[in-house]
Simulated assay, not measured.
Amino acid sequence: MAITPGTAREAGVFEAQADGRADDVTVRLTCYTADYSGVLKSNSEIAEFACGAALP
């Protein structure tokens, strides 16, 4: 797959306690959305893809 240039935008930043770590350890995930061409495939740590609602 290939990201369409100029279409990436931030979808949100999420923070949560790190699983299995001390209470003061957090994980920050910055998510993006973009137009793309090709086929999305899962591998490594990504078990599956699910489509959600489009962002405004």
Rank of each mutant, 00 (worst) to 15 (best):
G20Y: 04
E45H: 08
A18W: 09
D19F: 15
G38I: 01
G6Q: 00
Q17M: 04
A11R: 12
G38W: 02
D24N: 15
R28S: 13
F14Q: 12
S44Q: 14
Q17R: 11
F14E: 13
I3M: 02
L55A: 14
V25I: 14
C31S: 11
A11Q: 08
L40V: 02
S42Q: 11
T7Y: 02
Y36N: 01
G12A: 08
D19R: 09
V25T: 13
R21H: 10
A50V: 09
G12I: 00
A53F: 08
L29E: 13
T30Y: 04
T7I: 02
T4K: 06
D23P: 09
L55Y: 11
Q17A: 10
L40N: 05
A50L: 08
L29D: 14
A2R: 05
E15H: 04
A16E: 15
F49L: 06
A16I: 04
G6I: 02
A18H: 12
A47E: 15
S37Y: 01
I46F: 01
C51S: 12
S44L: 12
Q17Y: 04
I3L: 06
A11C: 07
P5K: 03
C31G: 07
A2S: 15
Q17H: 11
N43I: 00
C31F: 12
F14C: 05
E15M: 08
A47M: 10
A2M: 03
K41R: 14
N43M: 09
Y36C: 02
E48G: 04
D24Q: 10
L55M: 11
R28C: 05
F49D: 06
M1Y: 06
S44H: 14
A53Y: 08
A2W: 03
P5Y: 01
L29V: 15
T30F: 01
T4C: 05
V39F: 05
A18D: 12
I46Y: 01
T26K: 13
I46K: 05
Q17D: 07
G38D: 03
D24R: 09
A16F: 13
D35G: 07
D24Y: 14
A34K: 02
F49Y: 15
T33G: 07
C31N: 09
G52E: 07
A8M: 03
A47Q: 13
T26Q: 10
G12N: 08
A8S: 10
G20V: 03
S42T: 08
V13W: 01
V13Q: 14
S37T: 15
Y32F: 10
K41G: 06
Y36R: 00
A47R: 09
